[in-house]
Structures are given as structure tokens and as C-alpha cells.
């Protein structure tokens, strides 16, 4: 039910988006095996704000990173992820 401000489309209903994962869970392809597994399975899981990666799957299909408070759902920042974009 959240309203998410998509960098490409503007404010849209949460139903148009899919949550992917937290930023801290992303495993770089060049990470060494031990570090890769540690990243994959350990989570900060804060009772507060966290950086998350979402996709506007049923909208522009673009990717975004947002900083959301996990108790109040307040979204404090949004930025696009992806290649350089023509305005």
C-alpha cells in the first residue's frame, strides 16, 4: 500500500513494484568465495532505515534503490539503478 516515488514514473502504488533484496546482500561477481557466502547469508536487519533494491516491474521495469524505515515504512530516499538514461 506504500506509495513509491519511481525515478522514471513518479509516485506509484506499491502493487506495481517488486521487492528484490537488501543492498547489503548483493554478492559482487568478483567476490572471493568466502566473502560471497558471508554476504549472501548474513543480514544487518536493522530496526530502522535500510537500503533496499526494488524493481518497478509492472511499470517502467526500471530498478531503484530506496532507503526505507522498516518499522514505519517511511521512504526517505530513492535513486535509480541502471545505465545512463536520456532525459
Amino acid at each position: 500500500m506504500m506509495l513509491i516515488d519511481c525515478p522514471h514514473c513518479g509516485p506509484r502504488a506499491q502493487e506495481e513494484f517488486t521487492y528484490e533484496r537488501t543492498r547489503d546482500s548483493v554478492v559482487p561477481l568478483d567476490a572471493a568465495p568466502a566473502a560471497a557466502m558471508a554476504t549472501l547469508y548474513a543480514r544487518a536487519n536493522p530496526r530502522g532505515e535500510e537500503d533496499e533494491i526494488w524493481r518497478h516491474t509492472l511499470g517502467c521495469r526500471g530498478w531503484l534503490e530506496l532507503r526505507r524505515h522498516r518499522m514505519t515504512h517511511a521512504i526517505v530516499a530513492v535513486r535509480p539503478l541502471g545505465p545512463a538514461v536520456l532525459p
Binding site: 528484490e20 526500471g62 530498478w63 539503478l81
Partner: peptide
């Protein structure tokens, strides 16, 4: 489809 888009946009946007 989601996985390929993830790789293209989040992991390798420069490609």
C-alpha cells in the same frame, strides 16, 4: 526475465 534485468541494470549497467 527478472534475473537478466537484474544483471544488466544492477550488476553491469555499463555493458
Amino acid at each position: 526475465a527478472q534475473h537478466l534485468s537484474w544483471l544488466r541494470n544492477v550488476m553491469a549497467p555499463h555493458l
